[in-house]
C-alpha cells in the first residue's frame, strides 16, 4: 500500500485561487488600468473580494 501523494500547501492554495477567476480578473484590471501609478491599497476593495472568494473556496 502506498500512501496517497501528498498535496503541498502551495498546490492547495493554487487550486482554491483557480476558483476565483472572475475576482482575479477584476483585481488585475484595476491594477493594470493605471500601472504607472500603483500605490498601497489602490485596489483594496477588489482585493478583499478576491481574498474572500479564495477563503471560501479554500474551506470547501
Amino acid at each position: 500500500m502506498s500512501a496517497p501523494p501528498r498535496i503541498r500547501p502551495i498546490e492547495k492554495f493554487g487550486q482554491a485561487v483557480a476558483k476565483c477567476s472572475t475576482e482575479l480578473s477584476v483585481y488585475g484590471k484595476c491594477i493594470v488600468a493605471d500601472y504607472n501609478a500603483v500605490h498601497k491599497d489602490k485596489c483594496a476593495n477588489e482585493f478583499m473580494k478576491l481574498k474572500n472568494c479564495y477563503l471560501a473556496a479554500a474551506k470547501k
Binding site: V17, L24, G28, K29, V32, F47, L50, K51
Partner: peptide, 10 residues
C-alpha cells in the same frame, strides 16, 4: 494572490 491576478491580466 495579488500576483496571480496581475500576471494574468498583464
Amino acid at each position: 494572490l495579488a500576483n496571480e491576478g496581475i500576471y494574468r491580466e498583464l
